[in-house]
Design a binder for these strands. Structure first.
Ligand SMILES: [Mn+2]
Ligand SMILES: [Mn+2]
Ligand SMILES: [Mn+2]
Ligand SMILES: [Mn+2]
Lengths: 243, 243
DNA sequence: GTTGACTTTTTGAGTACCCAAAACAATAAT
DNA sequence: ATTATTGTTTTGGGTACTCAAAAAGTCAAC
């Protein structure tokens, strides 16, 4: 009865990329700054300013000059919808075309923007509605304006059990290292020990004890298993979360 | 030893569409005219002129002002490669996502241009290297500069046997009529009679005798079965061949 | 509180893309 | 041969997108 029509916003590639980047950089609802966006997308700061003004015009975000931008609800919905599409396409590349999980991100980014959302939905059902992208990040439902955040591996406390997710945009060298450690998307880990002062983390992965440093452990995200559901889910600081 | 490097030409969407349209309209090697191209692609004549000048600059075609354009060999290769991609994507939509053959054309056109040719190739092998698109037209090999032409159903003589191909861009009303006649892509037909003075054509389709007029029969293309290979393959005038 | 470092926005410039309408060329009709 | 018709190109105008560099704003240090 309200006049909330399901207006379907048509966005261009740069607009979508911008919204995705803002969402990534300002997850909890904070501000994203021009410079950070320029770095993230690989555009000049001037271009970022122009683009966000265009998006502000369409009420997808609010722009406080010299301060930064914040997504509106509509903007968050659009961003999440872009992320959904990205993750479905990644899943398609990995499940239906056999690409390795660390190749999917780049290729998905190349054509996801032109894909009719009709085809996106068909891909989704053809793959039996997968819950996550090949990197282990959740595929959000359509029309939601928020994706539940995941803590990093390093945010877990000893005793916690979790399933790992590794961003598709991770540095190849790191990916090789992680692979050697058995830390692939979907793998289950049990935290055994965490040394103080940002010290290394000891855990059990596929029947083996593994130790990794804070730096790497902070790049890996996890879905905590409902068992010991304490692990810093709401309070611990959550990092930027690509995929 | 020659300096023929396999230079990979990067083409934009309008450029590709232009090359495809020119190829379709000037199959045998003749000229394509600005107005016909404007109609085919849905652009203004002025835009067509600008685009072909850009392509002429890159030696993909020759432009004789006020006369028309003719593709160079490089241009034909690029056009065929674009058609190959279109048909692979159509096949993907129909085989892997379950779209009906008459829906595939429109959707393929929406995102084929951004698809990395790496992904195109993976689709192709994932589908076991299909010989034709869902409409029955051949998927050309990479790097060829010509696609063998197909005669129309109406060009066949009594006694000829053939497999039908129906352009994906056919008017929905016609599609419905063809469907009722059993004339779907891949179906085998045997010509029984052809009445003079552009009269109707009588044929056997799926165990039934069918009669259709010249107008419709000229919109259907066929692959003649090697049996009675006489049927006007080289001489009979071949029509524009979409798909 | 003025200076200086840093960030952001604005300005100026260029490409690609599109259209409508004026100018032009080729052709057909008188 | 002139005129009219038709088709093509050019011109003028607009949006989106991008950058480099100038101008403006913010903020922290002195
Ligand atoms: Mn990704
Ligand atoms: Mn992913
Ligand atoms: Mn087609
Ligand atoms: Mn086809």
């Amino acid at each position: 009865m309200g006049d909330l029509k399901k207006i379907h916003i048509s966005l261009t590639k740069p607009d979508r990329e911008m919204l995705k980047a803002i969402y990534r950089l300002s997850k909890g609802g904070g501000f994203a700054h021009t410079g950070a966006l320029a770095d993230a997308i690989g555009l000049s700061p001037g271009t970022v300013t122009t683009t966000i003004k265009r998006l502000a015009e369409r009420d997808l975000l609010e722009h406080q000059p010299y301060r930064g931008v914040e997504l509106t609800t509509a903007g968050r919905r659009a961003a999440v919808s872009a992320i959904r599409r990205h993750r479905i396409v990644e899943r398609f590349l990995s499940d239906m075309l056999g690409y390795a999980w660390n190749e999917a991100d780049r290729l998905a980014g190349a054509f996801e923007h032109e894909l009719p959302q009709e085809v996106e939905e068909r891909m989704f059902v053809a793959m039996d509605r997968p819950a996550t992208c090949p990197h282990g990040f959740p595929i959000p439902d359509p029309d939601v304006s928020h994706i539940p955040e995941m803590p990093t591996l390093y945010a877990l406390e000893p005793g916690a059990e979790a399933v790992v997710a590794v961003p598709g945009s991770t540095d190849p060298e790191v990916v090789k290292f992680l692979d050697a450690m058995g830390l692939r998307p979907g793998v289950r880990v049990l935290i055994k020990e965490k040394h103080p002062f940002d010290g290394p983390l000891v855990m059990r992965v596929a029947g083996q004890d593994r130790t990794i440093g804070e730096k790497v452990a902070s790049q890996i995200f996890v879905r905590v298993l409902s068992d010991s559901d304490d692990g810093s889910n709401g309070s611990g600081k959550l990092k930027e979360q690509p995929a």
